[in-house]
Design a protein around this nucleic acid. Structure first.
Lengths: 170, 170
DNA sequence: CTGCAACCTGAAGTTCACTTCAACTCAAGG
DNA sequence: CCTTGAGTTGAAGTGAACTTCAGGTTGCAG
């Protein structure tokens, strides 16, 4: 079957060769080798890379993407149906994230109205629907807010009522 | 005026003390000092931190956030109007990003239909509306796709027609 | 006034997602 | 056959956004 050398594969996928090698080390994509040990990519790998890029745009980490891709069949080439299943699941993730951002937008709009942006009062960032305080960057958008998740590195303080301000200093 | 020590401020803002010191070094927030050199935060700084967190959730880098916050008045405390202006501008950014994700979702849906996820054929990731190949992570969602932006580290190849596959190897 | 939690600093460490480098090998056109 | 651009590896470097650490200081409760 026709295969692509890494340079051509890079050009076609829009991902740098170094990144492709990295993805391979990380188990996201694979390649065969020539007798001379050069990588050759099957065309079907382009779909994997496409998927990786889409997922990244949504803010998903490579680790999560790898886990998702792991559900594709080993050995045989993934069929349309395989991809369709995976895509459907991720469409769900996308949808989730969109809803989250819409909520964020609506709440920000509310805050423009009241001019507040207050942490405790405004429900933009309040303990109830805690979107923040997970990792750095956009990965917070990634993990849907759920219960039993530790809120992060905030040092626990012995209970202060929610409306107390803490020690008041001069 | 009443101020908060870093621990209390951290508890109230949901951001770790170490992160707050980091933000200060990076010029995103500020504090006054006691005679003993300890940080004291004004309540108004909570709004800044709130804003930082919101922006981060949308995938904006601290650098961009700092630039945005730089538009708030120096010296006097920002008024509601100041915040409203800033928020309005960022609501726009949010909106943009939502549109982007919705497009992504619709295109992914299309791809479920055709089962493709092909790079060149599918308009999910095609050179025309190039969303990808910027930085890692979600920061690509951040910079709206525009012309004269270098596409990244993809080694330029002398022109290959879009439908050619590159050298074909056995 | 003392004890101890909370705070300070600068430097170094961490994770993610890559890129760059050096030193070397492969493969295809002339 | 030879040259040269493309490919290989492991190791080290990068930048963003923090955290951790060591070693020392502050400030409030008792």
């Amino acid at each position: 079957m026709e295969t692509l050398a890494i340079g051509d594969f890079a050009a076609r996928s829009g991902v740098a060769p170094s990144a492709l090698r990295y993805y391979e080390r990380e188990g996201l994509i694979s390649s065969t080798r020539t007798t001379g040990n050069q990588r050759r990519y099957q065309r079907s790998e382009l779909r994997r890379v496409a998927f990786i890029k889409i997922a990244q745009q949504v803010g998903v980490s490579l680790e999560e993407i790898r886990d998702a891709l792991a559900e594709l069949p080993e050995g045989r080439n993934p069929t349309k149906a395989d991809w369709a299943r995976l895509s459907a699941r991720w469409r769900g993730k996308l949808e989730e994230r969109i809803v989250l951002m819409e909520r964020l937008r609506d709440q920000l709009t509310g805050c423009i109205g009241c001019g507040c942006l207050s942490l405790q009062r405004c429900n933009l960032i309040n303990p109830a629907d805690r979107l923040a305080a997970r990792g750095p960057g956009a990965q917070m958008i990634v993990n849907p807010p759920d219960q039993n998740t530790d809120v992060g590195t905030v040092t626990p303080r012995r209970d202060r009522s929610d409306d107390q301000i803490g020690r008041i200093r001069p």
